[in-house]
């Protein structure tokens, strides 16, 4: 018999795996959910195939149950929860009410009303309001309730609001990569200053520097809406960006450039803490490093700014990069405290 299936830790039963799966699914969606939870969850899931089966199956059911909400939020809670109280209430038996049913109905009605009212009140509380930020050199992944994921680059800040109608992310500063779970009923809207990027199911990054933004799309399609004032009086139609598109939106307008996915992916290696340069002007490479480190590099000599450099580096580890410049390009490097100055020899 094939019993190689029991890779599962400590001979966990199928039912135990199933119970845990439901709890994970629900918690992941309604929170609270931290990065540690995500790690613990991934570890749990990869623990056995049985867990994966349970997780996938119930995730599907869970998704289907969500459709009940489509029956209308008015009709359901009252109606479906109304027979909540149809079970005999034993506490009533001890009360000397002489079979008079009126008090009992009154009680039921008032309790019911309270429940409905509470549900109604609570409805607003589910619209979670969350801010996430990273320090210089930081990198973090934020799982969202809808299954989407936001990867925050160095020195960045987002605010995430998910409700039943939309998923809104406000990129307040820095850069983020978005892996958007498909959900046509809830558009995924990233706001950066006055600009908006709208997606349904896709992967893209947005980098913000003041009011200038740069959007790179690796999968699916997004719509970039420049500032509403750009087109006087009427709604700006926006620019549709497909995979390979890199758009820069500045005050003067939007410029779209086509790149290969490989090139874009290369620019997105920051998601794993890596910076990749290929024929990159020294000035640009230095500017990149400066985003990730308190220790700043300065180019003293304009003559060396255009020298092209290449390589793969840890974004928060300056030394290998500086050493490469020092040895490989024979430039002069002087260090003092948090300042590293590059100049020609």
């Amino acid at each position: 018999m094939s019993t190689k299936v029991t890779l599962s830790p400590s001979m966990e039963s199928r039912e135990q795996a199933e119970q845990a799966a439901v709890s994970w699914i629900a918690r992941r969606e309604t929170g609270p959910w931290s990065e540690q939870d995500e790690v613990a969850f991934e570890r749990w899931l990869s623990g056995s195939m049985s867990r994966q089966v349970a997780y996938y199956r119930f995730k599907r059911t869970w998704g289907e149950v969500g459709r009940l909400g489509a029956l209308g939020s008015d009709a359901l809670p009252e109606q479906r929860l109304s027979d909540t109280f149809d079970e005999p209430d034993t506490s009533q038996a001890s009360l000397p009410v002489h079979g008079s049913r009126v008090p009992r109905y009154a009680l039921v009605a008032s309790v019911l009303l309270a429940v409905v009212f509470a549900l109604f009140l609570f409805r607003n509380e589910i619209f979670g309001l969350n801010s996430y930020s990273t320090e210089v050199g930081g990198l973090t992944a934020v799982p969202m309730a809808d299954g989407s994921r936001v990867i925050l680059n160095t020195n960045s800040r987002v605010r995430i609001v998910v409700d039943k109608h939309a998923r809104r992310i406000d990129l307040q500063r820095g850069e983020a990569f978005f892996e958007v779970a498909k959900d046509p009923s809830r558009p995924f809207v990233v706001t950066a200053g006055e600009k908006q990027i709208v997606a349904v199911g896709t992967q893209f990054s947005v980098r913000r520097e003041g009011e200038n933004i740069r959007v790179a799309v690796t999968e699916g399609a997004v719509r970039l809406m420049a500032s509403p004032q750009a087109v006087a009086g009427e709604q700006a139609p926006g620019v549709l960006l497909s995979p390979g598109a890199v758009a820069r939106a500045e005050r003067t307008g939007v410029r779209v450039q086509e790149q290969s996915i490989a090139e874009i992916e290369q620019q997105l290696t920051w998601r794993t803490g890596i910076l990749t340069f290929r024929n990159t002007p020294l000035m640009e490479a230095v500017a990149e490093f400066n985003r990730y480190n308190e220790r700043q590099i300065f180019i003293e000599d304009p003559g060396i700014a255009a020298i092209e450099v290449g390589g793969v580096f840890r974004s928060t580890d300056l030394d290998p990069f500086v050493r490469l410049i020092e040895d490989g390009l024979s430039l002069k490097v002087s260090r003092s405290g948090d300042r590293t100055v590059l100049s020609a020899r």
């Binding site: 629900a26 009940l68 479906r80």
Partner: peptide, 23 residues
């Protein structure tokens, strides 16, 4: 099928999934 669930199950599922309330 939802209607036929035991009462507590129904309430809990509704609040967790549709209302999105934490446990």
């Amino acid at each position: 099928l939802f209607d036929r669930l035991p009462r507590r199950c129904r309430e809990v599922l509704w609040m967790r999934k549709i209302e999105g309330l934490p446990q």
